[in-house]
């Protein structure tokens, strides 16, 4: 089984995001970069399937030079090789352009399943997996918490509002991973050592034949709207504080 796992390098969830004074983006100083957590679930699932069914896991990432670290992390977890698409013109690309670059890199390699995170926790777009599936002409199953491969089909679990769907899809397909799919492993020390020698192909947009035409442009990045200062509710005892809170929620906020 040939499996592709797409990964993106993003700021760690504990990062305090600061907007640049000119509002052109975020200030990257001091950011700790990690593999997008949802992509990590995809890498883990890819490795588990490979271990069960044999085959190869190829990691594909679009990102600046630093993203190589994230590819190496996935290789250290157990993937065989990587493709790093690095091009300054892709740094501010939109999901369609990123998916086009991924599709161009993936269409030339064999694949049965492609894993992506259900969204990246930086731009939160959640579009790339589905666009990639469309560009490759294969089905998608998104936001998945369970995967079972059976011959040429895959059975997955997809939570939606108030229900869980059990979906069957033909292969090849794109699966976007949701938390709950698995518990990703840590890279072992021998794994880290081995990863240094694993091959990573470097490509740019031109070598992939991808034209860069950003259609959804972030024109401004802004800090979140300020919240008015809150009120600490005082009182003699918990009962009195609770009574005052209930009153405020009813009379002032009018939310109950």
């Amino acid at each position: 089984m040939n499996i592709v796992a797409c990964v993106k390098q993003v700021p760690d969830t504990e990062t305090l995001i600061k907007v640049k004074p000119d509002r052109s983006g975020i200030d990257e100083t001091g950011i700790k970069w990690v593999m997008n957590p949802y992509d990590e679930f995809g890498v883990e699932e890819a490795l588990r399937l490979k271990e069960k069914l044999s085959g190869e896991v190829i990691i594909v990432s679009v990102g600046p030079a630093r993203a190589l670290e994230t590819i190496r992390t996935a290789l250290a977890m157990g993937a065989e090789r990587g493709i790093h698409i690095v091009d300054p013109a892709l740094d501010s690309a939109d999901p369609f352009t990123i998916a086009s670059a991924l599709a161009a890199a993936i269409k030339n390699i064999p694949y049965d399943i492609i894993f992506c995170g259900q969204r990246a926790i930086d731009d939160d777009c959640g579009q790339v997996g589905a666009i990639l599936a469309e560009l490759l002409g294969i089905p998608q199953v998104t936001v998945i918490t369970k995967v079972d491969v059976d011959g040429n089909t895959i059975k997955v679990t997809r939570p939606i509002e108030g229900a869980q769907l059990i979906i069957e899809s033909s292969l090849p397909c794109v699966v976007t991973a949701q938390k709950g799919l698995n518990e990703p492993r840590y890279a072992s020390l021998p794994g880290i050592m081995k990863a240094k020698k694993k091959p990573v192909d470097v490509k740019d947009a031109a070598s992939l034949g991808v034209s860069i035409d950003v259609k959804a442009k972030i024109t401004k990045t802004l800090p979140p709207p300020a919240r008015p200062p809150g009120k600490i509710i005082c009182g003699e005892d918990p009962a009195e504080k609770a009574r005052e809170l209930a009153r405020l929620l009813r009379e002032e906020a009018k939310v109950i």
């Binding site: 939109d94 999901p95 666009i131």
Partner: peptide
């Protein structure tokens, strides 16, 4: 930007080769 809408809208971005602001 519901479960169904997220799944459908992203596929449509691909089919229509356009851009989308999510959520």
């Amino acid at each position: 930007a519901s479960a169904q809408g997220k799944d459908l809208s992203a596929r449509l971005v691909g089919k229509l080769a356009t851009g989308m602001a999510t959520d």
